[in-house]
Amino acid sequence: MDKNIFEDRILDYLDGSMDFKERKEFESFLNDNDSYKSMVNDIKNNIKLMKSVEPLKVSKNFEERLQLKIESLSLNNNDKKSFLSSSARQWIFSGLSIFGILVLSFLFFQPNSNLVIADEKIQNEQKTLIESPSKNSNDEQIKELDQLDNFNGSFVNDKQ
């Protein structure tokens, strides 16, 4: 077995994920090669040792320090919130001021605006009359013309 192939298979061997045939083949290879066998044993022992290591513990004041940090963080957040609310107040104040100015401007210029609207209305009516005179007005015009003709006729007859 090639060294690289052997090394690649150590993990599977130690995990017990080889099938029976593969395991037997691997073990017979180990029995024939003392240096490889010793390497696998060393790895096994190291793993055992690593599992037995007592974990380190954080300092006694760790939780206390964490608590202080979190509390200061909360305070900062509150400061930030109050800052935000004051800036929000500034925005609202500015907005209201602008709105007030607009309302005042509208009230101040309102008469002129009405005049403009009235002018527009008159112009529209005139336009309507010129572009599309109503049937009634046509009839009236015809009537007037007829009356004028009649008048002219009667005037001529009188003369004769």
């Binding site: 150590i10 390497m39 060393d42 790895i43 190291n46």
Partner: peptide, 11 residues
């Protein structure tokens, strides 16, 4: 796998 082998060789 490689890390274990390196560790074993060092030790």
């Amino acid at each position: 796998n490689r890390g274990r082998i390196m560790l074993a060789e060092k030790l």
